[in-house]
Amino acid sequence: MNTVIETILNHRSIREYEDRPLSEEQIRLIVESAQAASTSSYIQAYSIIGVKNPETKRRLAELAGNQPYVAANGHFFIFCADLHRHDVIAEMEGADLTASLESNEKFMVAVIDAALAAQNASIAAESMGLGICYIGGLRNQLEEVGRLLQLPDRVLPLFGLSVGYPANPSDKKPRLPMEHVYHEETYPQDDAVYKQQLTAYNEQISSYYNERTHGKRKDTWTGQMAKMLSNPSRMYMKEFVQSKGFDKK
């Protein structure tokens, strides 16, 4: 095992940071690492917005569901699917790219490109001894987020990434067993085996919460998922995405 793999396997979400900003060099290296990620057909369909202004962070924290670690961190990054520059390319090259830019395929490309870049950024930050936490709560009120960040059409904020020096490192949360997520040749369809694996995982997760909270929590993973997915959220998303010029075809 090398240090890169050790960094990856040691990941945990950090939600409490020291009052200490990242240096410009750290920010530059994190962004350069993000840009080194693979990108479909070299399209580079994403942008990253860094937020330092405390008032902007505070407002983003409110929009994300009053998550304090959106406001209190060393630096806050927002990863966006971005096809706006390709509108500019269309103008520069005298080409009609509308059908392609409004396709479901290019929407997926932009989302995947942004996610790959973000994961590179996360690993780079963690390799520096920093902690990170992804913030999907920005999608609670995307119109307000877009207005705050002055985003043009074809730019869609997907999630935030809080980064900073860990003040109170959390425990590493157990993942699903490898045999439940990795399959060779074909996808197994024996749900009885799946249920056995999930039952064993539930026991592990329940024990994790029990120890971490001194007996205050003992919930299972399947119980969490059933509760969360029973209450559909952000159901405005398709309409909003299309209003920004994505996924129309």
Rank of each mutant, 00 (worst) to 15 (best):
M1Q: 12
T7C: 10
L9S: 08
R15H: 02
E16P: 01
Y17V: 00
S23D: 05
S23G: 05
S23N: 04
Q26S: 02
Q26P: 00
Q26L: 03
I27M: 07
I27G: 00
R28W: 04
I30D: 00
S33P: 03
A37G: 03
A37N: 04
S38I: 09
S40L: 08
S40Q: 07
Y42Q: 13
I43T: 12
I48F: 04
K52Y: 10
T56H: 13
A61C: 06
E62P: 00
E62A: 11
L63C: 04
A64I: 00
G65N: 07
N66V: 04
P68A: 06
Y69I: 00
F76D: 00
L83P: 00
L83W: 02
H84P: 02
D87N: 10
E93C: 12
E93H: 13
G94W: 09
D96L: 07
T98Y: 10
A99G: 15
K106I: 12
F107D: 03
M108S: 14
A110K: 03
A110D: 06
A114K: 06
A117I: 08
N120H: 15
A125S: 08
M128F: 15
M128D: 08
L130I: 06
C133N: 11
I135S: 01
L138I: 13
Q141M: 11
E144G: 05
L148T: 05
L151T: 03
D153F: 09
D153W: 07
R154D: 03
L158E: 05
G160E: 02
L161P: 00
L161I: 06
V163C: 03
G164F: 01
Y165D: 04
Y165H: 14
A167C: 03
N168W: 06
N168S: 11
S170I: 04
D171T: 13
D171I: 10
K172C: 10
M178Q: 12
H180F: 15
V181C: 05
Y182W: 12
E184V: 10
E185C: 05
E185W: 11
E185V: 13
T186H: 09
P188Y: 09
Q189I: 06
D190S: 04
D191F: 15
Q196P: 00
I205C: 02
Y208A: 05
Y209W: 14
N210L: 11
E211F: 11
R212A: 13
R212G: 02
H214T: 10
H214Y: 13
G215V: 02
G215W: 10
K218A: 12
T220K: 10
W221K: 06
W221C: 05
W221R: 07
Q224N: 14
K227N: 14
L229V: 12
S233H: 15
K238C: 09
E239V: 11
E239D: 15
V241M: 13
G245S: 08
F246N: 03
